[in-house]
């Protein structure tokens, strides 16, 4: 019965500049997923016609319309420019989480991925706040309602990206940990119960077949989709409330 270990992403190669930039499994897998998504987009959108004749174009239009309605419902019409960003974030998050199903290291099980996404969202929030209120108005916003509360306002501002990143990471990582524990527990169980049978039956962990599929349905499929949805939803809420001038 093997023990259960949680390890971070493997480091494949270290670029020897600036004190060494590690190329980890996360980076490689993210680039693979980005390549797949780009190829998918190119395939879906090449030679479009005014009147859709192919199923491919109908699927592409359906996906675009879904993304557009999703953004418009939650942010309003004036934020139509955010559709590509939100759609890209959603599909990257979804595909990254789902790539765990193939047995590869899922990039969303690494906190660095989510931290970078959350930082991107934080920059967008700050940009929209400055744009809506002006630089002075932005800094004045920290002293509201009274000056004494400034530290708490700064903490709550910083807590936004931190909690977004940890929420996504925690959900995916907890799924990974629970599935790993379940696999090792089932291996131990079948070793105890079937271990006395000589030959192949005793040495193969038979209980690992089938039983984890039900949990995998929740932790891998449902949770991946839900976390992508929630991350995009929160992004949209924060950005649209940041752009609100409060008038």
């Amino acid at each position: 019965m093997g023990g259960f270990e949680v390890t971070g992403a493997k480091i494949y190669y270290t670029i020897p500049i600036l004190g060494g930039i590690p190329i980890t499994e996360t980076v490689v897998n993210t680039w693979i997923i980005m390549a797949i998504l780009t190829a998918l987009c190119i395939w879906l959108t090449h030679d479009l016609k005014v009147k859709p004749t192919s199923k491919r174009q109908i699927v592409a239009e359906f996906l675009y319309k879904t993304a557009y309605n999703f953004v418009e419902e939650n942010m309003g019409k004036q934020f139509g420019a955010f559709v590509p960003f939100i759609a890209a974030l959603f599909s990257l998050s979804l595909f990254s989480s789902l790539s765990g199903l193939t047995g590869a290291y899922s990039p969303t099980a690494d906190l660095s991925t989510e931290i970078s996404w959350a930082l991107l969202v934080f920059v967008l929030i700050t940009y929209n706040k400055v744009k809506a209120n002006g630089v002075l108005g932005y800094f004045k916003g920290y002293t509201e309602p009274i000056v004494v509360l400034t530290p708490f306002n700064i903490i709550s501002e910083v807590a936004t990206p931190v909690s977004m990143a940890f929420r996504h990471f925690g959900n995916i990582a907890s799924g990974t940990v629970i599935m790993g524990l379940l696999y090792s527990a089932l291996a131990a169980l079948s070793h105890i119960i079937l271990g006395w049978i000589p030959g192949a039956i005793g040495s193969i962990p038979l209980f690992q077949l089938g039983i984890p599929a039900f949990l995998s349905l929740y932790f891998d499929l449902f949770s991946s989709f839900l976390q992508a949805f929630i991350f995009c939803m929160l992004t949209m809420m924060y950005i649209s409330s940041a752009a609100d001038t409060g008038e």
């Binding site: 940890f166 929420r167 925690g170 959900n171 990582a173 839900l226 949805f229 929630i230 929160l234 809420m237």
Partner: peptide, 17 residues
Amino acid sequence: MLLGCAVAETTGIYGFI
């Protein structure tokens, strides 16, 4: 509801981490 659940979950996630 899903959005609210996700926000409510944060403290649990901190504990888990």
